[in-house]
């Protein structure tokens, strides 16, 4: 009984997060672009789920965030799913290596994940079209996006640290009863 309640709560928190962040990312942040660059909020969410929770939740979060992104861009369906799935998985794996409650690490890994995402998009869409200016894309798209995402992740981190703490407490309570 309590167990299903905790799961429902978890799903609800995730659903609302995706909903709000997606709308912010596509409808509000384009007005606050810096040099034509907007942060990637759903990628930050996936990173948090992977790094601050676990591999399993990172993957699931990545899968659904990717699904939402794929539905909004009329491109090859599945590209964002694959990219964010890998990012969720990767961050789950990092978590096992660098375990700790340090603030710096999740935020740092947001940047790393964003660079990975940029590389993935470049390899998938720009290399097949014969693009050779990798250094240009690195300097004016990937790195700025990663930096902007890190800044936004810094703010989001404190919100999600609180939320995840609360979810953990609920889960522990359930385990205690069981």
């Amino acid at each position: 009984m309590n167990n299903t309640k905790a799961i429902i709560k978890k799903v609800l928190v995730f659903g609302i997060s995706v909903y709000l962040l997606y709308i912010l990312q596509t409808a509000l942040f384009p007005y606050f672009e810096l040099g034509g660059i907007v942060p990637n909020l759903l990628l930050i969410l996936t990173t948090f789920y992977g790094f601050m929770r676990n591999t399993r939740e990172g993957m699931i979060a990545g899968f659904f965030c990717g699904l939402v992104l794929d539905l909004s861009t009329g491109l090859l369906f599945g590209v964002h799913i694959l990219a964010l799935l890998l990012i969720g998985f990767m961050n789950g794996a990092f978590r096992k290596i660098f375990y700790g409650d340090d603030v710096k690490l999740p935020i740092l890994f947001t940047g790393v994940s964003d660079l990975f995402y940029g590389l993935f998009m470049y390899l998938f869409f720009f290399v097949p079209r014969g693009s050779t200016h990798f250094s240009y894309f690195l300097m004016s798209v990937m790195i700025p996006e990663a930096v902007y995402s890190v800044i936004v992740a810094f703010v989001l981190y404190f919100i999600y640290a609180k939320i995840f703490e609360k979810l953990d407490r609920d889960e522990r309570k359930v385990e205690h009863i069981l």
Binding site: N54, T55, R56, M59, I60, F63, G78, V79, L82, L85
Partner: peptide
Amino acid sequence: SNILFLILFTISILFLLVSY
């Protein structure tokens, strides 16, 4: 979680192929 990863990975590859 390894199996879950494989399942989700296969689904996304399938999506890619179908949409291609």
